[in-house]
């Protein structure tokens, strides 16, 4: 069953002496796109890591809610989480189809071949490219494949860390389409980006971090680029 809400409560994370996050509270709801913004080193990727269950918070708690019931961060919950990270999370020695079929298998997706080709259609990787090993791909093609991998199980919590990096205009359009589709679908979408212009229109929820601390939260159905830029500069700079 898809997630309806994720509550981040007083979450902190230390790496040795360095405090990456300090007492962050955020509530994420289904059908919303949350822009997680902040300067470099603000703790955005750490928060995404914690939301993905791959990083354990040093303090605080993350509650994943399915319907009205809280869920434990177990194997089943991870099926609901799709992550697009800085790295591709794909194998360079395998082709795009082989990568997606492998991950579809791990997520228990029926008909992995058909799912892989459908996703590659959606992200715009054409027939010849799909049969080449990922090692031969350009940065933008890798990013398209990484997006397809993140979507392989149709997640209800979609975490995208700098998703527009390396994408050309077509790729950015496809990504915008997927974000809109995920939102209309009732997914919780978190986007970490410095590309405010690309994300403004689809943003419902702005969360700004600075030096590991939450400095601003604002909810509004769609921002203009100018509005989002103003909010960012007022709180992040």
């Amino acid at each position: 069953m898809p997630l309806s809400r994720v509550a981040v409560q007083k979450v902190g994370k230390r790496f040795g002496q360095h405090r990456a996050l300090v007492g962050v509270d955020v509530e994420l709801a289904a059908g919303e796109v949350c822009a997680l913004l902040g300067p470099n080193g603000a703790g955005k990727s750490t928060l995404v890591g914690i939301l993905s269950t791959l990083v354990r918070p040093s303090s605080g708690d993350v509650t994943y809610v399915e319907g009205d019931a809280a869920r434990r961060a177990d194997d089943r919950l991870r099926r609901e989480i799709g992550l697009l990270a800085h790295a591709s999370l794909c194998y360079g020695e395998l082709t795009a189809v082989e990568n997606l079929v492998f991950f579809a298998g791990l997520y228990g997706v029926a008909e992995p071949q058909a799912r892989a080709h459908a996703l590659l259609d959606q992200v715009g990787l054409d027939g010849k490219a799909r049969e080449r090993t990922v090692r031969t791909y350009s940065r933008g093609m890798v990013q398209r494949l990484a997006l397809a991998r993140a979507l392989v199980a149709d997640p209800s919590l979609l975490l995208l860390d700098e998703p527009f990096t390396g994408l050309d205009r077509g790729g950015a359009l496809a990504l915008g389409q997927r974000l809109g589709q995920a939102r209309a679908d009732g997914a919780i979408v978190v986007v970490v980006t410095h590309d405010l212009e690309a994300i403004a229109e689809v943003t419902d929820h702005v969360v700004i971090l600075r030096r590991g601390q939450l400095v601003h939260v604002e909810k509004k159905r769609g921002f203009t680029y100018a509005e989002l830029r103003d909010v960012y500069h007022r709180h992040a700079d």
Binding site: L54, D75, R78, L83, A85, L89, Y91, G92, Y107
Partner: peptide, 16 residues
């Protein structure tokens, strides 16, 4: 090899 594409994270993130 797992480090190159950070694929170990992908394996650990899967519900498997």
């Amino acid at each position: 090899r797992e480090r190159e594409g950070d694929t170990m994270r992908a394996l650990l993130l899967s519900p498997a």
